[in-house]
């Protein structure tokens, strides 16, 4: 075997499979987004940036963009704050830790389809688990039409946040475990109070974990499609539509492939805006480690 060739032989299956079925489609999506293609049968004709121009005046799209914005904000705040609290509590109490951990991690095993089905039932008016729970606790006043036009987007977010919290808890627990115990003990010996130790030692050392949790939350929020599809199909009246779902609908429901592709490109660019700096930083680290 030629020594120069060998690495590429090992990489070949990955490159070939990804090249044909992954990389080539990425470029094609850009190309299709510049056409008015309808369906798969015939290629559309080149229309330049018309699809993108149309998006600017598409109320459905703008509406979904707004909802995606709410997703991003909620996803950055809620699951991560919850997860870091849970992680700290689990770390500090030891009691029944493995069972408790399993409970918090469990949603990770569930698909968005299942999460959607379960939470659909939870939000069901009157007989649903949530309304029943609130009635049981005497909190009937809080009941709203969870999957109605006003609340649907938030309700879907809550369902997804349940699963995202599980993910972030895993990450933060791992981050906490990676902090050397001696460091915290040293801080204690130095006379640090609990609060001081948390804010000055623990939190800064959780930075790698936070980076992961935050970037995951961002990406999940930007892409949220499957759970919207299962829980509400974007409804009622588009009140829970998000960008990713919009793309799916335009393409596979309305068969406007060119138009759908342009939304796909926008989703990709939004993701890239967050991913590129992350990869840049990684590139620097790699060059340090590998040279």
């Amino acid at each position: 075997m030629n020594a120069r060739l060998t690495p590429w032989l090992f990489l070949m299956p990955a490159i070939v499979i990804y090249g044909i079925f992954g990389a080539y489609p990425i470029f094609q999506t850009f190309a299709i987004s510049l056409t008015d293609q309808v369906g798969v049968a015939a290629p559309g004709k080149f229309v330049g940036l018309q699809n993108y121009a149309a998006l600017l005046h598409d109320d459905y799209f703008l509406n979904s963009l707004k909802h995606t914005g709410i997703w991003v904000i909620a996803f950055l705040l809620v699951p991560n704050t919850l997860a870091i609290s849970i992680a700290l509590l689990v770390k500090q109490t030891f009691w029944g830790a493995s069972l408790i951990k399993t409970v918090f991690f469990l949603p990770l095993a569930l698909s968005f389809a299942i999460v959607g089905v379960i939470w659909g039932w939870i939000y069901e008016p009157d007989v649903g688990l949530l309304d029943q729970l609130l009635i049981g606790l005497g909190l009937d006043g809080l009941i709203v039409e969870w999957l109605g036009p006003d609340a649907a987007n938030y309700s879907v977010i809550a369902a997804a946040a349940w699963r995202q919290t599980a993910f972030a808890t895993v990450i933060f627990l791992a981050g906490l475990s990676a902090i050397p115990q001696e460091l915290l003990e040293a801080a204690k010996v130095d006379g640090g109070t609990r609060r001081q130790i948390f804010f000055r030692i623990t939190l800064p050392l959780l930075k790698p974990a936070s980076t992961i949790a935050v970037s995951s939350a961002l990406i999940q929020a930007l892409l949220a499609t499957e759970i919207v599809l299962t829980m509400t199909e974007g409804g009622p009246f588009g009140s829970s539509e998000v960008v990713g779902y919009r793309m799916y609908m335009e393409t596979f429901w309305n068969y406007k492939f060119g138009y759908g592709a342009s939304i796909g490109v926008i989703v990709t660019l939004m993701t890239a805006a967050f991913v590129v700096p992350y990869v840049r930083r990684m590139a620097k680290a790699q060059e340090r480690d590998w040279s």
Partner: peptide, 11 residues
Amino acid sequence: FVPVHTQLIPV
């Protein structure tokens, strides 16, 4: 990090 949405249609 590439979203499914970038590949869905061509695939």
